Amino acid sequence: GGRIIFIEGMIMTRRKSAAMLLIVLLSASVSVALLQAPPVAADSQSERGSGNTSPLTFNLLSPENGATISDPEPTLEWGASPDAESGIDHYEIWIDDNNVDNVSGGTTSWTSGGLSDGSYSWYVMAVDRAGNETQSTSTFSFIQQGVFDVFDYGAVGDGSTLDTNAIQATIDDACAAGGGTVFLHDGVFYSRDITLGSNITFYIDETATLKGDGDNANYSYFTSSSPLVGRQQRAFIFADNEENIKIEGGGTIDGNGGNVGESGWKGTEATRPMLFWL
């Protein structure tokens, strides 16, 4: 109920609620005013969810525990952690006890930006919208082995310095080790012809471009062992009588040849080096 107050012949009825203040003045002339109460700040816990139950347990999937891999950008995968009460907000990826990255609650994989050779341990933490946390049921480990980074062999990757020798030295060392992954990343690598060997993964990351020399006079001739080829050839990337070669990574291979007749191309179609001979 409200109060009725007599003020000089006027009757004022006052009612107050949490949402608004209503004042009605009753007299010869009646006026009504509605004053909106200030908004109430949302409780942070209400915004995130009010669940008191931690996310359910979940397992790591790959790489398998104790695995030896040769992938400069390995993908870690795990099973989803159900949380029916408030939902998963995000997953935290921990490598060697460092929180290296977070992914959204609908994602159950993460790809590394590049790992050098060595041993690594990892686990994942599920965090729901109420802030509750659950760690994966186990911690996995893996060994990164057989990744050969061209920067370790003197590559510059500035797009103008000739990196042929550094790239070839990286390939040769990988071949001498019985195979491995030659890793190009974070740069534009200007090069002339390079030769791959057996059991080599030539990994050109999406952050990298392998750019050829635009002058065909700077490419070496080779003689193929194939009986179908009766003359010498030239190619930007060459391998002959080798096996188990892969070219991966999502990067760019730019032969830099242009079209015959363009001012940037020095040569004719007959003498143009091929992009690949594998």
Rank of each mutant, 00 (worst) to 15 (best):
E8D: 10
S263I: 08
S160A: 13
G261E: 10
S62L: 09
T268I: 14
I11V: 12
S121A: 07
F238V: 15
R48W: 11
V182L: 03
S138V: 05
A130Q: 03
G2W: 07
Q144W: 05
N132L: 08
D213M: 06
Y221E: 04
S121Q: 08
V24A: 12
R272W: 14
S54W: 00
S112A: 13
A80G: 08
L22Q: 07
A18D: 07
I245C: 13
N241L: 14
A37T: 06
T201K: 08
V260C: 10
G79K: 15
I93H: 04
L25W: 06
G51P: 01
T53Y: 03
L56C: 07
S54T: 13
D215H: 03
F183C: 14
E206T: 04
E133W: 00
M20Q: 06
I171S: 03
D158K: 01
N244K: 12
N52L: 08
D117Q: 04
E269N: 11
G250S: 10
W78P: 15
G79Y: 00
G180Q: 04
E243H: 04
L26G: 04
Q135F: 10
F222C: 14
N259A: 13
L196M: 06
F140R: 09
G178A: 09
N98M: 04
T252G: 01
G261W: 07
E85C: 03
F276A: 05
N256G: 15
I4K: 11
V182Q: 02
N59C: 09
L196C: 02
N199W: 01
Q232D: 10
T75W: 01
T161Y: 00
V260E: 11
L21G: 12
I7L: 09
S46C: 10
G9H: 12
F142P: 02
S121R: 12
Y123T: 07
F151G: 07
P273L: 04
G159L: 13
T164A: 06
D128M: 10
I5S: 10
S119A: 14
R272N: 07
S263H: 06
N98T: 09
G159F: 07
G255W: 11
Q135W: 10
Y219M: 01
A18V: 06
T195I: 08
K211H: 04
S116A: 13
Q232C: 02
V260P: 02
T107K: 05
A80K: 11
L22E: 14
S160P: 02
G146A: 07
A176C: 06
A41P: 09
L196Y: 00
G79V: 12
A155L: 09
S31Q: 08
S136R: 00
A166N: 03
G2D: 06
A169L: 08
I23V: 08
S138N: 14
A174M: 08
Y219V: 01
R3N: 15
N241S: 15
L26N: 12
G212W: 00
Y203A: 10
A28C: 12
A217P: 01
A239R: 00
K16F: 05
E8T: 05
S44K: 06
